[in-house]
Simulated assay, not measured.
Amino acid sequence: MLKQLERAEQKWGGANTLIDQWLNHRRKLLVNYCQIAGLPPYESLDKSLPEFKSVKEFCDLLVDYVSEGHFEVYDRVVTACEKNGESTQNLAQTIVPKISETTDLALDFNDKYTEADDDKILYQLDKDLSSLAHAMETRFELEDKLLEVLHANAS
């Protein structure tokens, strides 16, 4: 996912402040994900679970990222697509509902870990992070298609 982000940053970085901000937030989310998942370069030698507080901070970033897409970025992309013909409008109408499916999984993850009052839930974290990673990878691919449209219409 980080390599996918780097490609997106190289392709669209600096073209539009909204795109730059969104990609920066995606980077923060991915770095935080790697930290709580214990992925390189953040793996710990003792393979202990992350602190409950760290997981909740990740959930905050996750919800902020998902919300920013739905309430800021997608609206601008859809508006740009409406102005630039039926084919781009159809693309946006096809992609946004698919992204919404990944939103549900992200919000379920958030609810599970922010509403928990016992850190024993962290024993389920690896499995849940794996499912979330798959959904977010799909989401990032779809978002990149929207970014392509936004970039093409912002230029």
Rank of each mutant, 00 (worst) to 15 (best):
L105K: 15
D60Q: 14
V77C: 04
D64A: 10
Y74M: 00
D20R: 01
P41R: 03
P50Q: 05
D119C: 04
P97L: 13
A154L: 10
D75W: 09
V77N: 13
S87H: 09
K28I: 04
L142D: 03
T79K: 10
S87E: 14
H70N: 05
L105H: 07
A15C: 11
L150G: 01
T103Y: 13
S44C: 11
R76L: 00
P41V: 01
S87G: 02
R76I: 01
E6F: 11
L45Q: 10
D144C: 09
Q89L: 12
I99D: 03
R139K: 12
Q35V: 15
H25T: 05
Q89R: 04
N153W: 03
L39D: 14
N84G: 01
Y123W: 14
P41L: 06
E82W: 03
Y123R: 13
T102A: 12
L91F: 02
L129V: 09
W22S: 10
P40F: 06
T114M: 15
G13K: 15
K83M: 11
L146S: 05
G38M: 10
L29W: 14
N24H: 12
L39R: 07
E82F: 07
L5I: 10
A116L: 03
T17A: 10
Y74A: 02
N16S: 08
A92L: 11
T94K: 08
E82Y: 10
A106H: 07
N84T: 03
Y113M: 12
Q89E: 11
C81H: 04
Y65D: 07
T114V: 15
H25F: 08
H70S: 05
I19L: 03
I121F: 06
T88S: 07
L146C: 06
L91V: 02
Q124A: 05
T114G: 13
P40V: 08
D117R: 09
D144P: 05
L125P: 13
D108G: 13
N16C: 12
D75G: 07
L45N: 02
K47W: 06
V63C: 04
L105W: 07
Y33K: 02
E86W: 12
V149W: 00
Y113F: 13
S131H: 08
K145Q: 08
D118G: 00
S87C: 07
L147R: 01
E148S: 12
K83W: 07
D118V: 00
A152R: 10
K47G: 03
L125R: 14
P50L: 02
T103A: 09
L2E: 06
L18I: 04
A106F: 14
N153C: 12
L39W: 10
A80Q: 11
L5A: 08
D46A: 00
V63P: 03
D60K: 09
D60C: 08
E43C: 07
K28R: 12
K112V: 02
D108Y: 09
I19D: 00
D60L: 12
L105R: 15
V96I: 11
L18E: 02
Q35W: 05
S100A: 13
N110K: 11
E57T: 05
I36W: 05
T94L: 08
P40Q: 04
L49I: 00
L62A: 13
N110I: 08
A154T: 15
K47D: 14
D20M: 10
L91P: 01
D128T: 08
L107W: 08
Q89M: 05
N24W: 14
S67T: 15
E68P: 01
V149N: 00
Y33P: 03
L49A: 10
V55H: 02
V63T: 05
